[in-house]
Simulated assay, not measured.
Amino acid sequence: MSDLVLWKERNGVGHILLNQPELGNVISTPMAHALAGVVQQALVADVGAILISASGKQFCVGGDIREFVQNRDRLPQTIHEILAVLNPAMHTLATLPIPVISAIQGALGGGGIGIGLCADIVLASTTVFLRGGYSAIGLSPDLGSSYYLTRRAGASRAKYLLMSNRPASAQECLRMGIFDELHEPDALASQALQLAEELAAGATDSLAHIKKLCDEAHSHALQAHLEAERYAISDCADTANSLEGVNAFLEKRTPIFVRR
């Protein structure tokens, strides 16, 4: 297994760590294969949450421009080959039936936007800056960058950020809804880990249904969504975790949930 992306499991949390800090965790062909391999490990792991983070000063600066230059005579094929590996992995990661949290520091650009924002909850350092980068080199977004920016900030802001290629500060991203929380650089890792461990200890049935309902809300008519909610809450109610949660509430204690 490559050391470009690391995987570990601890306290019910699966940790995905981008690990090429000297190059800003660029998305190269080797990085793509490494990340896809780690996502396969996450798919079968007995964990209750996933935490995505990165080594070094930058979370991910985007695609490996040096690789693009080296392969300029077959650039379309190179990009196609990378995305043929990463697109299924990104879909798997985003649709895991457990909470996914990302902790973002430094530069966030290009396909790194998709990797960072595919999480259900996005925590970032106060020093982060986001820049699309695509329009500066005549390319369009990939890895869900336009999808997640549009869902989080709206189509108008997403087009502005991606077309103008102007950087957005952490505070601007927070105001636009791109990030959910900001933390000082030295506190980001501990805050993200604390949240991931709290969610990993939660009622997995409840969290899985919450994730699915929220992700599908925009595509449902109200009546269909009400029915989906009815099914979900009935399914949750028929679990030991629901009984434990109700009993713990009445007994004024912290519930002890089990992973399913």
Results as ranks from 00 to 15, higher is better:
146 S>G: 13
236 C>Y: 12
231 Y>F: 04
168 A>P: 11
174 L>T: 15
230 R>G: 11
194 Q>P: 01
207 L>N: 02
213 L>D: 02
144 G>C: 12
141 P>G: 05
226 L>H: 14
140 S>F: 03
167 P>D: 02
241 N>C: 13
197 E>N: 01
171 Q>R: 13
155 A>W: 05
214 C>F: 05
231 Y>R: 02
216 E>Y: 04
143 L>S: 03
169 S>Y: 09
228 A>W: 10
236 C>M: 05
184 E>M: 05
212 K>P: 01
190 S>D: 15
194 Q>I: 07
202 G>L: 03
228 A>H: 13
151 R>D: 13
190 S>H: 12
163 M>I: 10
139 L>I: 11
158 A>Y: 00
203 A>S: 11
212 K>S: 13
229 E>H: 08
226 L>Y: 14
186 D>T: 11
169 S>I: 08
217 A>R: 07
232 A>K: 06
155 A>F: 09
231 Y>L: 08
217 A>P: 01
171 Q>D: 14
199 L>S: 00
142 D>Q: 06
203 A>N: 11
210 I>V: 06
185 P>F: 00
168 A>Q: 13
222 L>T: 13
164 S>K: 04
186 D>N: 11
187 A>G: 00
205 D>N: 07
216 E>W: 03
191 Q>L: 02
164 S>H: 07
224 A>S: 11
215 D>F: 00
137 I>V: 15
173 C>W: 02
141 P>H: 04
147 Y>K: 12
189 A>Q: 15
207 L>H: 00
233 I>M: 04
235 D>N: 08
143 L>T: 05
147 Y>N: 10
229 E>Q: 14
204 T>V: 03
180 D>I: 14
217 A>M: 07
220 H>Y: 04
191 Q>S: 15
156 S>E: 14
148 Y>L: 10
218 H>I: 10
241 N>T: 09
225 H>S: 09
205 D>P: 01
233 I>N: 07
226 L>Q: 15
210 I>L: 01
219 S>G: 07
137 I>S: 09
140 S>N: 10
165 N>T: 07
149 L>G: 09
137 I>L: 10
212 K>D: 12
215 D>Q: 07
163 M>Y: 06
